[in-house]
């Protein structure tokens, strides 16, 4: 039987849709691990990137730290977290959070730095105070790049969460790692398809959120912003 027929059979087997190793539970695990890590990472990274970008200070430091951060292999971060904190979701979430931070810091910093100085001057001239200027002028203009950073982080976190199966984590990665260990190609292939679909769904849905958040007035500027976005792949 061809591999594709076996995979179809795997997907149509009702046993793979129920229980703790069923697709619904594994989906929830994967999404939960990823969402918590991206949210935690955003809570840390966005204030840093936006703050430094707004005040224009410590920029080289922030970018430098991010650059070193992305040189750390995601696989190594996971295994180190496992060795330090042991089994469970905590080491996985900590590792994924660490991975989520650099792209969000870099992108939000660059986004705030790239706001046209004339626009900021105009805002000052119109009597905006700093907080109002940040919230009502700079942030809306920075949304496309900030969102691109969140999107990059989220897709990488979803990808790395699949690797978390190597350190006994849940999620769709379980099927890949267990399938490889059991030489069950149908399971391994099905898991790979599920991980790929989840990563693509993450990319597309966050792109949709970005479309909703970008103010109409600057939507025309979106294309060049997307070209400038710093994408990075760690897993």
């Amino acid at each position: 039987m061809s591999i594709l027929a076996q995979v179809i059979q795997w997907f149509t087997d009702p046993a793979h849709w129920q229980g703790t190793d069923g697709i619904p539970i594994r989906l929830v695990e994967h999404v939960q691990l990823s969402a918590e890590s991206v949210a935690l990472g955003a809570l840390i990274a966005l204030p840093i990137g936006i703050g430094l970008g707004h005040f224009g200070v410590f920029g080289n430091l922030a970018i430098g730290v991010s650059n070193i951060g992305r040189a750390v292999p995601s696989f190594a971060i996971l295994v180190i977290a496992f060795q330090v904190f042991g089994l469970g979701n905590t080491p996985i979430i900590l590792a994924l959070t660490a991975l989520a931070i650099p792209p969000m810091v870099t992108n939000s910093y660059v986004a705030l730095r790239e706001v046209d100085p004339d626009v900021k001057d105009a805002a000052r001239g119109m009597g905006y105070r700093r907080p109002a200027q940040l919230v009502r002028v700079e942030l809306p203009l920075a949304v496309p790049l900030i969102m691109a950073g969140i999107r990059t982080s989220a897709v990488q976190v979803v990808a790395t969460a699949a690797l978390a199966a190597l350190i006994a984590g849940g999620g769709f990665g379980r099927y890949i790692i267990d399938g490889l260990a059991q030489q069950d190609y149908a399971k391994e292939f099905a898991g790979a398809l599920l991980v790929a679909l989840l990563a693509l769904a993450t990319e597309v849905s966050l792109w949709g959120v970005e479309q909703l958040l970008v103010p109409r007035g600057i939507r025309l500027l979106r294309a060049p912003a997307a070209a400038r976005a710093r994408t990075f792949k760690t897993a």
């Binding site: 398809l193 990563a199 990319e203």
Partner: peptide
């Protein structure tokens, strides 16, 4: 966009 682990597993 597709994770590397996924592509490795699809190619095996």
């Amino acid at each position: 966009t597709i994770p590397s682990i996924s592509l490795f597993a699809l190619l095996i």
